[in-house]
Write a protein that binds this DNA or RNA. Structure first.
Lengths: 206, 206
DNA sequence: TCCTTTATAGCACGGTCATGCTATTTTTAT
DNA sequence: ATAAAAATAGCATGACCGTGCTATAAAGGA
């Protein structure tokens, strides 16, 4: 089997263990058991526990970024301009990609937040945590700049502040859904997101 | 020495260890060393590791709730009505109490998020995590209801949605400040909070 | 003073962990 | 067929952990 494929299978076992039992239970033994492998087999693909964690975090980061950029490319593609309604819907869908609206995405958010929390005290993870945070800030900034060019943003808005605000809202929804399961359903999250976006547009365009 | 006093001193050692090295390093041994005690002494006041964690989480929860209610009482006290400007400033200050604007509050947020994350997989902590979340939702709801009564809220606002949105914003700012230290300074956080509150009020009142 | 209670301290056991190292099996290339 | 390489499996060590249990010191009341 392709080594990279094997590494990804192990990483997915990491995700399952993290989601079910937490990062502190994600030992080489538990991951190996989850993947149906012996501990020695896992260590054949990863030099040690740290390397496995870094790889898993990179894998999750890549997965999230890929989904975001797919939407961003469609939205910002100048060769296939979208109608205003399509723009608005595409923006909602793209930002909704970051929300744990279904079980699969909820797992991803839980795993990602676990890694981001661990990165606070583990230097080898720090860069990857900040990378996604910076990417999200850049992405929201671009969306807001596009909205301003299209006249769909209140003229007195400070884009830098609004980008922070939108990021914080998305992160907050993710955090609450991840840490307080069952208290924030998908419909409510979407309603909050739509309310926020509606509040950003000028009253005349609503 | 008063036993309760001793327990609180140990809890503060827990906070320091959690903030500096993370919850997974918060063992009885490390906490005892941080508190300048022998491990047996700590165990004289706490039956075991779980009881220590629950106590520390309760202690932090109580501290946060106390600060919030102090501001809430002042704001909602009908015997000493505030001018609109005072109301607005009091609301900002109260909500800012939840933000990690200085080192002390940043430590509290880091510790609290660590516990909230751990509560996801540890049933004995779950109730305390949800308690503070529910309290924050109730508090923001009351604030928005008060603003609506005073005519300081856009009339088309859905208070339930707006309360969720405000909570998510506060949680998001806390999360980013805790997990990405140095990327979100106090001034920016306050600017985001003020922008959000300003966007909630009718255009005529701005 | 003596005795009981409380506080402080620490040992020892069993468990989990990461990891260095080796053995066995399977695959691949020649 | 055979040698080399890759993959799988597992043992042994040392470290850290929670906890049951005991020992020593301090404090307080008779």
């Amino acid at each position: 089997m392709d080594p990279e494929e094997r590494r990804r299978l192990v990483a997915e076992a990491v995700f399952r263990v993290v989601c079910r039992h937490g990062l502190e239970q994600t030992s080489l033994r538990n991951v190996a058991a989850e993947a149906g492998l012996a501990i020695g087999s896992v260590r054949h693909y990863f030099a040690g526990h740290t390397e496995l964690m870094v790889f898993a975090m990179r894998e999750m980061s890549a997965r999230l970024i890929a989904r975001l950029t797919a939407h961003a490319d469609r939205l910002l593609d100048p060769s296939a301009p979208l109608t205003p309604d399509e723009q608005r819907e595409t923006v909602v869908r793209m930002l909704a990609e970051m929300l744990p609206l279904d079980e699969e995405r909820r797992t991803e958010v839980v795993v990602w937040l676990s890694f981001a929390a661990a990165a606070r005290t583990r230097p080898e993870l720090r860069a990857h945590a900040d990378e996604l945070y910076d990417g999200l800030l850049v992405l929201t900034t671009r969306i807001l700049e596009g909205a301003r060019r299209a006249g769909r943003l209140r003229p007195d808005s400070d884009i830098a502040v609004e980008a922070r605000r939108l990021c914080a809202l998305l992160d907050g929804l993710s955090l609450e859904s991840a840490f307080h399961p069952g208290r924030l359903d998908a419909d409510t999250m979407l309603a909050v997101l739509r309310a926020h976006l509606a509040a950003l547009t000028p009253a005349a365009a609503s």
